[in-house]
């Protein structure tokens, strides 16, 4: 099972757990329709496109409404802490939520107790909580963007809002240095997929691949395009692809979807997600052969 956990920006959405399906333009979980917008919903949408294309089990999700006060986030943490062992997830991807250090510590302790330890992936504030809790090394995959790799590289920053000025101003060509610093700080997962002008994939401290074509700078403006990469990566890992290959495919697919959608800064993420099946159809076999 691929289990994705995160908040949805619907204040009164209760905690829901179940298989995700498409329902017209929406995601549907236990009869709850969720718009596939920026955040965890975009991540799930991209993962669902991968599982549909590969004809494998769709993602299973744990979601709750939260518009910032942390109530839904706490419900998700507690549900996972109490139920993760019995859910038997093969991949657990943690996403948007309020970063709460002690709850993240409890959750990772439960992950360690699972009979078969799930592949553990974090993006968004789940990644911030993992770093703040000193647990980055327990994670298999982080998917930071350029500012978030600066955050991981900064030993004093509790949140990206506190990264040092010189790291924020670091030129994108120096991202490899930040990756090394993040590993040196024990603030990196085993594999990093750093999303940016050039996407870097690093494994256990070493950069093993980079992706910079097609070059579509406008993608940075589009809310949710980092989420789609994390969603695809989670689904490909769940499908059995090696982590490094899954990362490479996901970074490439996002760029090609942007190209097909003729992305501009006003494009919405749903317009890119729509092109993912076409990208997989055109490119996936050749990418798999070459990696």
């Amino acid at each position: 099972m691929l289990l994705i956990a995160g908040i949805i920006p619907i204040a009164d959405l209760p905690l829901i757990e179940g298989k995700v399906e498409k329902n017209g333009g929406f995601l549907s979980v236990n009869g709850n329709d969720i718009p596939p917008t920026q955040g965890t919903a975009a991540m799930i949408s991209a993962a669902l496109e991968v599982s549909s294309f590969l004809d494998i089990e769709p993602p299973h999700v744990v979601l709750a409404g939260d518009i910032g006060n942390g109530k839904g986030s706490r419900l998700i943490y507690r549900y996972l802490i109490e139920n993760l062992e019995s859910l038997s997830a093969r991949v657990l991807a943690l996403h948007y939520c309020l970063p709460i250090i002690q709850l993240m510590k409890q959750l990772v302790a439960v992950v360690d107790k699972c009979g078969t330890r799930p592949v553990l992936i974090a993006d968004a504030a789940s990644m911030y909580a993992a770093k703040a809790a000193g647990l980055a090394g327990k994670f298999d995959i982080f998917t930071p963007d350029a500012s978030e790799i600066a955050f991981l590289a900064d030993p004093e920053a509790e949140h990206p809002a506190y990264i040092s000025r010189h790291l924020f101003e670091t030129d994108s060509s120096r991202v490899p240095e930040l990756i090394k610093k993040a590993y040196a700080n024990n603030a990196a997962a085993r594999l990093l997929l750093v999303k940016g002008e050039c996407d870097y994939i690093a494994l256990e401290g070493n950069i093993i691949a980079s992706v910079n074509e097609p070059d579509i700078p406008e993608i940075e403006c589009i809310g949710g395009t980092g989420d789609t990469i994390t969603g695809m990566l989670s689904a490909f890992v769940h499908a059995g692809y090696p982590m490094e290959q899954a990362a490479l495919i996901s970074a490439r697919a996002n760029r090609f979807a942007g190209q097909m959608a003729e992305a501009n800064p006003a494009t919405l993420v749903g317009e890119l997600i729509r092109y993912l099946p076409e990208v997989f159809k055109d490119k996936l076999d050749s990418w798999v052969e070459k990696t």
Partner: peptide
């Protein structure tokens, strides 16, 4: 505003929808 992006805290997807 045509887009907001980045972030990871739980108010960000909500603000994205409010701002678009």
């Amino acid at each position: 505003i045509v887009n907001t992006s980045g972030g990871g805290c739980p108010d960000i997807p909500y603000l994205h929808l409010q701002f678009l």
